[in-house]
Design a protein around this nucleic acid. Sequence first.
DNA 1: TTCGATCTTGACGGAATTTTGACTTTCTCC
DNA 2: GGAGAAAGTCAAAATTCCGTCAAGATCGAA
Lengths: 224, 224
Amino acid sequence: MAYRILIVDDEPILTELLSTHLQDHGYAVSVANSSDEALAKLNTKPNLILLDINMPGMDGLELCKVIRNHIVCPILFLTARITEQDKVNGLRAGGDDYITKPFGLQELIARIEAHLRRDERHNRPPEVVTSQGLIINLSNRKVFWNEQELSFSKREFDIIEFLSSNPNQVFDKERIYEAVWGYDAEGDSNVIKEHIRKIRAKLMQASGSEYIETVWGMGYRWKK
Amino acid sequence: MAYRILIVDDEPILTELLSTHLQDHGYAVSVANSSDEALAKLNTKPNLILLDINMPGMDGLELCKVIRNHIVCPILFLTARITEQDKVNGLRAGGDDYITKPFGLQELIARIEAHLRRDERHNRPPEVVTSQGLIINLSNRKVFWNEQELSFSKREFDIIEFLSSNPNQVFDKERIYEAVWGYDAEGDSNVIKEHIRKIRAKLMQASGSEYIETVWGMGYRWKK
DNA sequence: TTCGATCTTGACGGAATTTTGACTTTCTCC
DNA sequence: GGAGAAAGTCAAAATTCCGTCAAGATCGAA
């Protein structure tokens, strides 16, 4: 499943550029052009946040402290400032790294990857999801119904992973698309319908029960 | 077997001195006079790294972060800087200790020994991996199927070592490339396919069974 | 330097997966 | 009950990924 990155910067040109570039590298990107917007988008549960320090209203440092109260993930500051004092302030506020503008996109990707990996090591998400006799092992990507192993393709498993890790929550197709593919669906999102169908068929065949529920007009929900 | 220590410093006089001194104390020493050289020498799997912070190009802190993505071993910074901020940076980069220049050679040896001891206790990797009749000896890099010794090239063994040390986990080609070659693959990572093919052929010929499983779209997994 | 082994590259075919588009069914709201 | 939107189904096309081979590059020992 693609990592989700939240970009917070009041400079639309920059966010647009970054967004495109990160998407090209397979990340799912959300953009917030203000602190308020950023807070609103925290519910997308980003795996990493890129945060501009200089913003009108609540600035990046302030925002960083607030974010730290809500979720745990690496926060990288984007900044033109480079003084020692700024770094200290940033670290105090709870930031994990500094990237000074202008920066190379290569470097940015490298840092992001390093942090995501480190985060992965320290902050391991639950490895196994169980659900009425079904065992979904996220680390080796295997699914069992009792003794029997069920086989899913990459996309199928990605969808299962996403939904089953957030049980009882409804996600619309766009959100699923974003989480699994790493970017927004363009036109018709029939793809998801099709994958859901395959998943359901396999699960039904093995277990005889429905795990994915359709919430009409809203999306899908993993029943637990 | 002697402990291997990697010294990274752009000051030849210093590295020469240290090298001699450490060798006198029974250590196997490699020297790198630049960050690039250091990365190249990671495959010697040092048991401990002495790292200068001030270097041209990628500095010690940066290098430390990179190293941390590849191997686990104590990293001691050699530095003239002593500010609090530097310590924070160093520790955050993944360093284990600081030694400020100028330092006494006695003190250096003492610290090295302390860290090696600690490392030994906590973090001793298994020397031998066994897997359905197959014996993989990581310390002398030999592989046996029952009585018969199988021969693998360096790259081949490196891949076997990495995968078999993390059984049942799926690694994509990039991750394998990074673990074995020590840096990112640039373009096509066909190399891995080819090596995997060779490995499989040898293992299959000797044992008649598959050890490396392909997870379509995801990578490879060592079956255990 | 030469030779052999190892490592790397590029191309290709086939297999598995993913996506598409047309169509049917189901649901909601009037 | 009917229109329209949303979801489900199916088969076929498009794409991606893997395994394989052959040949060129590189490395290391003699």
